[in-house]
Design a protein around this nucleic acid. Structure first.
Lengths: 229, 229
DNA sequence: CGCGCTGTTGATACGTATCAAGGCTCGTGG
DNA sequence: CCACGAGCCTTGATACGTATCAACAGCGCG
């Protein structure tokens, strides 16, 4: 592990408040590994042997069923994934693979659980993290259950727009195929979605998106703070 | 509060391991109230002032958006709901109403958070509870994203069948309109779903369901332990 | 250079929602 | 006690959202 990675990890909400000894113990047991892109890290159904932290790169969480595949989330630096499975000492409910060359910290589950049992501050940090992740998940669920695909797309574009507060334009952080899978639609449908959003002030040129009339798009998207935030 | 309710509450995974003093403190601050059916308990968007525990009856969690409404969960005795919002000291992401006459325990959020801060065992119990709820939510999300409505119905029937390990028959625990909303489909579609499942050994007569050929239905449903379990 | 992948567009089919109508049950009030 | 009305459920006709299949353009990479 590079010495200058440690502060980033230590600064995560999950590890920030735990005591120094516990953190050192965790880091001592952990592995930092580099992976090329498109490497499978975890498989749905396998026991949760590690908690993962993405230090650099990107990890796609996905699931397959009956010949279909869907993206459940994208993990970007610096954050952890599959905490719930580690805590419950259960099987992963998602598979995960790198989408680009990545550096990943792997912390053995037993160490997480051991320190969780003895360090109250860590337990509380896990609570806050899980509660937050849970609420994000609820929003995604409502998003899918209450909105048609094109509105999910419009809202996602608005979120990306707001995150990169820059001028009018931003880059999609992943290819359109992946975006379609995140939104729960086919690539063909996403393409048509972009076409109809043109009328609401969305210009697409490759991965570059320009929103020329944010208010118009916002009205179309039916923004809802308890789904989108 | 009736004295014989306390053991049931104390025995919940959430409260089981906390120390006696903390539990007494919580119960001291709590209210136990009776509500008729169809009473709104919480409203999406309002601050999470209470943690709720259903002692008797049933609570439906739901959300509205753009003229639509969908059921996000049914809470039956004895369990709590909206723990995540309480912990994050945030707004409810769901609304909740009784579907029948119910007795509900209401614990002020501040008390939950205060004891969470000082009782490590309680913090750990919350972790385990949240992690479990989170995993249930992930499964629901995958269910919705990866399966068509009729397969969701088939799997739900199989789950109800397995829960009430009785002979071949069981009663739907709620009316079909609600079941449709849980499954993310319209009542009309649910009705047609039942009709096509007849061919796979599902007999419907009012709220009484009889599964005559479990294996056949199971094959049709494409059961997946990482969605259904 | 050509292969393969992504993305687009069109034609078509399927899943699902909507609208409408009618049967049924059940609770209420005459 | 019956009659009525409200709500649930079902069924049919139709429209819409979305997926599938196919073809092709553009691009990057070996």
């Amino acid at each position: 592990m590079r010495p200058n990675d440690l502060p980033d990890i230590r600064d995560l909400p999950l590890f920030r408040s735990m005591d120094e000894a516990s953190f050192a113990e965790l880091m001592n047991a952990a592995y930092l590994q580099k992976f090329p892109r498109q490497v499978d890290l975890i498989f749905e159904g396998e026991p949760a042997d590690f908690l993962y932290v993405v230090i650099e790169g990107c990890v796609e969480l996905f699931s397959r069923h009956a010949g279909r595949e869907t993206t459940l989330g994208m993990v970007v630096p610096v954050s952890s994934f599959i905490l719930a499975a580690v805590i419950r000492d259960a099987a992963y409910l998602m598979s995960g693979r790198t989408t680009e060359a990545s550096r990943i910290l792997m912390i053995p589950s037993e160490n997480i659980r051991a320190i969780f049992e003895k360090d109250g501050a860590f337990a509380r940090a896990i609570v806050r993290e899980l509660a937050l992740d849970f609420r994000v998940m609820i929003k995604e669920y409502k998003n899918l259950k209450l909105r048609p695909g094109i509105e999910r797309l419009a809202n996602r574009l608005l979120r990306l727009h707001d995150q990169t507060a820059a001028a009018g334009s931003f880059m999609l952080p992943y290819d359109k195929k992946t975006l379609a899978s995140i939104l729960g639609m086919t690539p063909e449908n996403l393409s048509r979605g972009f076409a109809t959003l043109k009328a609401y002030g969305v210009d697409v040129s490759g991965n570059m998106i320009t929103i020329t009339d944010v208010d118009d798009l916002r009205a179309f998207a039916k923004v809802n703070p308890f789904i989108d935030q």
